[in-house]
Each structure stands twice: as C-alpha cells, then as structure tokens.
Design a protein around this nucleic acid. Structure first.
Lengths: 330, 330
DNA sequence: CTGTTAGCGCGTTCAT
DNA sequence: ATGAACGCGCTAACAG
C-alpha cells in the first residue's frame, strides 16, 4: 500500500502538494498536478481514510443500529437511509442488536469508538440503562420507531393506527374482535398498538374475552399458533382479528383457512405494515402503510441537520400513515 | 471527547500504561490499573479506532457491496454475513451499487480507502472494467453470486437449478413452456438460467415460440407485464411458465388469475428463490431454495480464511440448492 | 505556487 | 512495573 509520501517522491513534490491535489485545496501548478496524478494512477494509490479522519475528525460514516436486517421493515428503512446518505457521500456502518438490550448498548459504544458522525437507532426497548447510555452519548443520534426521551425521534403513530384498524371492524358491524400482539417490552409495537385496540373497544363499550387477546413473537408461524389458541380457548369466537403485524396476520390467515373457515365471511382480518406479502395473499390483507422508507429518509435528514448545525434540540416527528383497506376486511 | 492522554493524567500514569490496560498487554500494577479503569469510567472514554487502526493496520470492518438492500435475497445474504462477522467482532460497512456498474467500482475503491480488511461483493455484471479493477485490488475479496474470474467466489448453481425447474414441467407432460427472464447483462440470473431453460427444451426436442421467452426486470409488476405480453403475442399459449425469480412468478400468477385462468390447471408455474411470499400465495409457488443465508456465511468464512491465512488462492464454491415442489406445479 | 513543521490519538520499542 | 520517544498517514499552519 503506497502512502502519500511514496507518491510525493515519485512526483518530485512534497506530501503537502500531493494533499493539495487530492483535496483540490490551495494552489498547485498544472505541471506538478499532472505529475502527481500520474504517480497516483501508476501506483494505484488510495488515500487512507483513517489518517485523514484522525486529522479532520470527519469520517463520512453514519452508524445504523437495528434489531435484525432480515425483515422487510428493516430493509425498507435502511434503504431510505441509504438513499439520502449515499447522495451526500456518506456510508453506513451497520450494527445489529439481535433484539438484545445489552447488545444495543454495546453497539452504540462500538459505533462511537469508530467515530461515526451520527447514529440512527432502531431500538426495541426503552429501558433505563439504554436511556442512561443515550444521555451520555456524545454522538448525534436520532431514534426511529421508539419514543426515547431526550433524543430526537421519528415515530410511527402506533396508537392511532391501531384505533383506525379497530374502527374498520366496528364500521362493518363486528363486535367480537380478537387481537394478536407482541411483548409489551416493545413499547411501540407491543404496548401502543395494544392500547389503541383496548381504548377503541372500551369506547365502543364492547367486552373483550381474555382469550381474544393473544401474544405472539414476530414470525408467521407464531401468528398461526396465536390464532389457534384464540379459537381454542374462547367461548364465543371472534368474527374479526387485528394482528399487530402483517406477518402475524398472514399466520392467522393460514390457520383460519386451514380450519375450514373463510376470510372475510367467517373471520375478517387486518394487520399493520403494508408488507408486500399481504398484497398477494388471498384475499389481499387490509393493512396500514407505515411508509418505512420515508421514515428512514426523514430520520436521516434530521440527523444530518443535527450534525451540520450542531443543532442539539430534540425534535419529535410523527410519520403520517396510510390505510389500505383490502378484501380481508369484508 | 477525552483521549488516552486525558485519562493518563487523570490516573497519574503515562499514556503507555493506559494503553496497556486497554489491551491487556504487558505488566501493570493492580493499583495503577484500578486508577485507570476508574478514570475511564468517569470520563466515559472510548478509544479512537482510527488512531488505533492507523497503528495496527487492523480495522475489524468488512465491506459489503450489493446492488440494493431492499430485496429479500440481499437481506438474507447480509444476515448470513452478519451472523458470522458479529461473532468474530467484525462490523459491516455497507455500500450499495444501485445496479450501476460504475458505482460498483467506485464503492470498491471507497471501501479500500476505508481500509476494510476484506470485501464481500455481490456483483450484477462481469464487465471488463470490473475485472480489471478487481485484479488491481489489494484487499481480499470474495464474490457472491456471479462468477468473476481471478477471485474467490461462492456461486449458486443457476444452470442446473433452471434445468431442474424445466424438468418439473416436463415430468408433468408439459410441452409448451414459457420463460420469463431478465437482462443477459446479469450473467447469473439473466444468462445462466436462460441457458438452462433452453438446453433442457432443446434436449427434449421441444420447439420454443419466440413469444414464449419474455424479458422482465426484477419486480412483481414487471412479471405481470411479461406474462401479459406472452399470452398476447403467442399463437399457441404456454401451459407452464418458468420465471427466473419468485417475484416475477408472483407477477405472472396475478396476471393469470386476473385473466380468468387457474393455476395449475390452465397454467403451471414455478420460480427461483424461495421467497417467503411464494409460500403464502394461492396456490403456493413451486420454487428453488438457494440458501442465501448460508451462502453469505460461506462467503464470509472464505473471506476470513483469506484474511487470516494470507491465503490468496482462488477458490470456487458452488452452493447446493433445494427443490421446493409446491401446488403451482400441478 | 511550494516545502517544512507540527500534531491528530494511539501502540510500541527501549530504557529505566 | 512504568515512562519517553517515535511513527502510523494525513492535513493545516506558516514560511518562503
């Protein structure tokens, strides 16, 4: 690996001059510039970003920490992030947390040590430890999807989205509405969506059998199982089911079909997420479009503002969502 | 941001001693170690990886270049990569190429300048320029999915997989088999899968109407359009269609259903990729499981070997694939 | 227009 | 067991 010094010698100039042509800074005679460029091409020289960063304190790298990258939601968000970042010459340093709270903190530290200029953080919890870590973090950070106090956040409107889904069913005259949720450790997906469901059922003065509320994890299979339990345990069975994610809803759909019932005649169904899969199942799944890509872009722009303006205010931004009423609704 | 010097002063020792406790190297009295650790915790000190890398030439970062990250295939591969990398303390620096050949080369250079210790490269073409760039690259690299000469590669068995898909149809007695492919610029997906199709049709001495072979891009909509064209342009219509990706096949499925035909009675269907969506459409889509995650892991392990052993041999590894015969086959 | 000097934060001899 | 000095590769003053 040649260094700036090597090519300086080759071109018969000082390292400073090489640096000047590299960064288009200051004056340099066209003769010298030419020799430098030739030397660079001949040696296949690539400047060391580390040395550069050490001096300039700039890395052109943004850290992204997320639970897992094999989900459609994650991909969309990262795609949105990448879209605005790559346009500005930034790169993404990826860090996955595997749904582990400790790993989230570890990754935050690691990214900081790599001197990333900013962090976009898709958290899955809002624990004390995490908040403490966040408050001590020097690197600009914006959280996406979870409402972490003390930092800028881009949020989905989980509560109202859930309310609207329930309203869909209510408008169709359903009174027995089941719910498939996830752990309340996940503030956004687990708690807020459940709150929306319960609030809406309450307001409509509709009783909810305990068995109508099932907890699942995040995969299709788990949605299937939750639905099976729901039908097995309930004395009167629901005529509609709200699953907090599309994958869960698809699992529910599988069970319902397999049990010989039809959708939406016997059971109506809706999810959240606008995953592609929901569009092509039969019947198409009613769902809520969270605009993940836009959320990623929004978060990135917010972060970039913080970085360039040194703007330390904590902004909260709630993404608008779109209702996709489809045949599974009835 | 505190530096090693700051905490050295705070602990009343020299920077060298701090470095020693940081890296568990050499002797350091437990008294000194204790003071150092306290200073670190008090100041929230995080060592600069840049300065460290500058000295040690190690970055613990692997670059990953891929066309786009919003596809299921990409996510699976990256997940596989991340799985083995994170276990060894490496991180991923992401670089997307947007299907642009020039951008692929740019990204390669950029990663090199960031001193990544190795690169995993999901190319979409095998152009001269690219091969030249690759031959000049100092950083260890393994390509995944495309057969680039002169570098280690992990490949899918596109040709034989395509043959097997056609065989499925042949075994069911189909003689009029349509094909939906993509641009031949993509050596693996575009050319090899097409070759497999043609070879198998040839061997079975089956004629192929020109209109039976359609070219699409990579999205569902495009599969829909290709199918529409196929049925519109052909004098005798196919009774089976092989789409080179599952998404294309799902698009085909949409068209066929919408045109009032049924699957597999009127038209049988198969794709490649084992995407989740194929499992839940009606009827379930027959497809080929490429084990993307395992491929990512394999490529990463290969790369890690190269890095640690300085092993510069060029290995080729062909991933085994699995046939998922499902109802769309008939 | 160009070279010299200094120092970014760290790990590493070499003394002590 | 510990510190002083040096250098990794680069950019930013400051001279000239």
């Amino acid at each position: 690996m040649p260094t700036i010094k090597d090519i300086a010698e080759l071109a018969n100039v000082s390292p400073a001059t090489v640096s000047r042509v590299l960064n288009n800074s200051g004056y340099v005679s066209s003769a010298a510039r030419k020799r430098v460029i030739e030397a660079i091409e001949k040696t296949n020289y690539v400047p060391s970003e580390h040395a550069k960063s050490l001096r300039t304190k700039k890395t052109q790298v943004i850290g992204v920490v997320m639970p897992r990258l094999s989900t459609e939601t994650s991909s969309r968000v990262v795609h949105g992030i990448d879209k605005v970042l790559s346009a500005k010459g930034y790169q993404i340093l990826l860090a996955t947390s595997d749904l582990s709270p400790e790993k989230e903190i570890d990754q935050l530290r690691l990214l900081q040590s790599k001197q990333v200029e900013g962090i976009i953080f898709l958290a899955t919890n809002v624990s004390e430890n995490l908040q403490k870590e966040l408050s001590e973090l020097e690197t600009p950070l914006v959280a996406l999807g979870q409402d972490l106090p003390g930092v800028s956040t881009v949020l989905y409107d989980d509560y109202h989205a859930a309310c609207d889904v329930v309203d869909w069913f209510l408008a169709k005259g359903h009174t027995k509405i089941g719910f498939i949720g996830v752990s309340a450790h996940d503030e956004a997906v687990g708690r807020k969506r459940r709150n929306g469901y319960q609030a809406q059922m309450n307001e409509a003065a509709l009783p909810v059998e305990k068995s109508w509320m099932q907890e699942a994890s995040f995969d299709i299979e788990s949605g299937y199982e939750a639905t099976r339990r729901m039908f097995k345990e309930s004395t009167t069975t629901p005529t509609a089911i709200f699953a907090v994610t599309d994958r869960l809803a698809v699992g529910a759909m599988e069970y319902i079909k397999q049990a010989g019932m039809s959708i939406p005649e016997d059971v109506a169904l809706a999810g959240i997420g606008a995953s592609e899969i929901g569009k092509y199942v039969t019947p198409p799944l009613a769902t809520v479009d969270y605009a993940n890509e836009e959320a990623g872009m929004k978060a990135t722009n917010l972060l970039l503002d913080h970085i360039s303006n040194g703007d330390n205010s904590h902004k909260k931004f709630v993404m608008p969502y779109g209702l996709l009423a489809r045949d599974s609704l009835g």
